[in-house]
Design a protein around this nucleic acid. Sequence first.
DNA 1: ACCTGAACACCGTTCAAGT
DNA 2: ACCTGAACACCGTTCAAGT
Lengths: 235, 235
Amino acid sequence: MFFPSPSMKNKPEKIISRRARPAKAPLSVEAIVTAALEIMAREGLDGLGMRKIAAALDTGPASLYVYVDDLDSLLSLMLDRALLKVTVPAPSRGDWRKRLSIILFSYTKVLMSMRGLGQLTLTTVSTGPGAMRMLEAILALLREGGVGDDRAAWAADTLLLQFSAIAAEQDAHRHHAPIVIGSVKQALEALPAETYPNIHALWEKLLAGSPRVRIRWTLDVLINGALSTPGSESK
Amino acid sequence: MFFPSPSMKNKPEKIISRRARPAKAPLSVEAIVTAALEIMAREGLDGLGMRKIAAALDTGPASLYVYVDDLDSLLSLMLDRALLKVTVPAPSRGDWRKRLSIILFSYTKVLMSMRGLGQLTLTTVSTGPGAMRMLEAILALLREGGVGDDRAAWAADTLLLQFSAIAAEQDAHRHHAPIVIGSVKQALEALPAETYPNIHALWEKLLAGSPRVRIRWTLDVLINGALSTPGSESK
DNA sequence: ACCTGAACACCGTTCAAGT
DNA sequence: ACCTGAACACCGTTCAAGT
């Protein structure tokens, strides 16, 4: 893949055009999104850039602009591609609450499966098919569960946000973490107990908790809260 | 302020050193943070940069590194400075729930009072006195309200996150919004009712709601949820 | 100790020119 | 229509040299 094909051996030129390489995949939105996701998985969101994507595709940065408006819109496309992998369970899988938790567990799992994705959800919005399929399913289940329309819309928003944040946090914990997490830990640990008695008592718990347990708890809190709190319909 | 002082008029050089200007405030962390906040308030978080801050302080970018480690740490300092303005009510102001809502309303108000601040909280963590003072107060109130220790830590996290996000959203709505919000609205509006019946029915509600009403509801949901959901203590 | 000019190693995006 | 070299207008950060 990295050398000119045999059929070109007898060309007289010493330098063979990159375009003449064998089976060079033509550019396309899909190819660009794929390459971008690969780079983000390897180097994180900060390591991503138009120039690096172009280099991975063996072209110049300008070429990408034929297929993509700009970096922001490319980030949206990347997010949406990832969200397509979220599981939306069939009605046979259980009642609304069970199915809602399947979606949200799957959502966090997908977000945590690739470096940078957690951070990406907190920075980017997608209105593509991946995001819309998930939103549609969540709204349907909340309504099925008897959460009023006003509350359902806000609850969906709140749920997605909360789980995005948990994923982003885990993302940070696992990757460029040592610096950031370590310093937060040190800072909390060093706080004087006299001035900050409650932080002093609880700082370990602030940073603790396996994702599984935490996700479960957060889900319960939000659903219980949304069910027991009247919405603005009663205004 | 923009011209050399009269006492320097008789200097022979045509070009007068910038340093010779009158009352040029010496650099300091405080001055840098102040200048940075001013720029962010005017031009948003994206408009902020070391070079622009330096220019505002009439110096070169290299000079800032005498006082500040790098851009990230400066952003932390900016956030902390802003959080110092959050109201932490005295016990006489009411029961724990009332006081908690005062803190969180004040928090969102502060975040929404300056362009870029909402986005900043979602991107940056601070362990400075502003952030710690607020966290300490929230933890104290949750414990006072009978939320168990494990749950209190997570609840504080969840509360702060949720309100940061609401502020960031309002930030976007009010400023560089027209593009982003407008396009999300258009995208949701255009979705086919057959494939996305629930989004179709609720899309207006997803984007609606005054900050006040929404904050009130979110606060109630989270507190009610945290109170009625057992923590992992019972594990 | 404090400050800084200049350079280093990058960015995203545009555009005229090529095929 | 698709692609691209080169340029434009920026970045954050470092460092040797000045005071």
